[in-house]
Nucleic acid binder design. Structure first.
Lengths: 183, 183
DNA sequence: GCTAGGCTATGACAACTGTCATAGTCAAGC
DNA sequence: GCTTGACTATGACAGTTGTCATAGCCTAGC
């Protein structure tokens, strides 16, 4: 893994664990084994650029999951989305939450890309829901519910250090989508 | 309003707008019109204590809303919960999101109280749902969904600078609770 | 073998952070 | 009127932050 993207991935991880403010450039360099000097070689835009790239990097991974599973229908997309968050929480031992949400919560300088990411995820879900026979307006709403509730559930699961909030939300979401798709 | 609680309230506001890391003690003092020296007079525990008190202060307000509206049944509680977040977003002109979530997202030093707050909110909702005839396990899950999805929706609405995500989530939540209560 | 350029190493800078000590103010209670 | 104690004002501290300049390394390409 090339050192540049290792820094981006490391930034995503650290931001997910401690937020943007508590993630210093020095610490990130140490964390990824890169020299501090390299940071401004790879990222002339400084910390802001690093944070932004971390956000789009995370978004790219999620988009891939969503796009691939979307072909299998709404329930498959939902399950894949849920599973990826579950795995994310478990492999981090409930230390990390979504870096995109962390960025969106903090200062507004780098919040632009984060805002687009949320819209992108929601926008990816909408046609999948529609293809399963859900009306456009309802699909828009349901897509917001799925993205919003899972983002919220991840924070709460991490904070409780327990899978319960995520699984509860997942179960209700499944029932709701199943009912919306069926009739 | 006594200057001490003015600092607590100000901390809650600033944390909701910029996160814990980006909220400095000096800025908070200036923001609330209090002298810097007073901070450590009122809060010998330093910034951590301030952050913690801000979290419980916010929680107290929400608990009061939830408890009062809960007497009117599940739908009333839900509507009150939604309304309070909507007002929160509008009066801050979509600059603020939930301070508790901001704390929970960032460092783990002060995350303990935030974690309890989420559990408290969820726990307040459960008996209200049960009293409307929803089975215990389902009520637990629905309560997590309500708290989690609204927390998520607030972040996304703020980030989109638009009420759409919140209203979408609100509408779906209303439908779900209405259906769960009825039969 | 040598040279150019991507990368590293080191160190510095000004600004800011949380924290605290100390001295000063000022109103309430005797 | 005086004293006590809550509060304010000021300034300092050590550490950390983002940022960048400069000097060195070290590997491709000729």
């Amino acid at each position: 893994m090339d050192p540049r993207t290792k820094m981006v991935a490391g930034a995503a991880q650290l931001i997910g664990e401690r937020g943007v403010g508590a993630t210093s450039v020095r610490e990130l360099a140490k964390f990824t084994g890169a020299p501090l000097g390299s940071t401004y070689h790879y990222f002339p835009g400084g910390k802001d650029q690093l944070v932004q790239e971390a956000v789009v990097w995370v978004s790219g991974r999620v988009e891939k999951i969503l796009a691939r599973a979307g072909e299998g229908g709404a329930l498959a997309a939902l399950d894949a989305f849920i599973a990826s968050w579950r795995e994310f929480l478990i492999t981090s031992d409930y230390e990390a939450s979504c870096p995109v949400l962390a960025v969106a919560t903090e200062d507004t300088a780098t919040a632009g890309p984060a805002s687009e990411v949320f819209k992108t995820w929601q926008g990816l879900l909408v046609p999948v829901l529609q293809r399963d026979g859900i009306a456009a307006e309802r699909a828009e709403r349901l897509a917001w519910l799925v993205v919003g509730s899972l983002e919220g559930a991840v924070v709460m699961a991490r904070s409780q250090r327990s899978p319960v909030p995520l699984e509860a939300v997942a179960e209700e979401l499944r029932g709701l989508i199943r009912a919306a798709v069926k009739p």
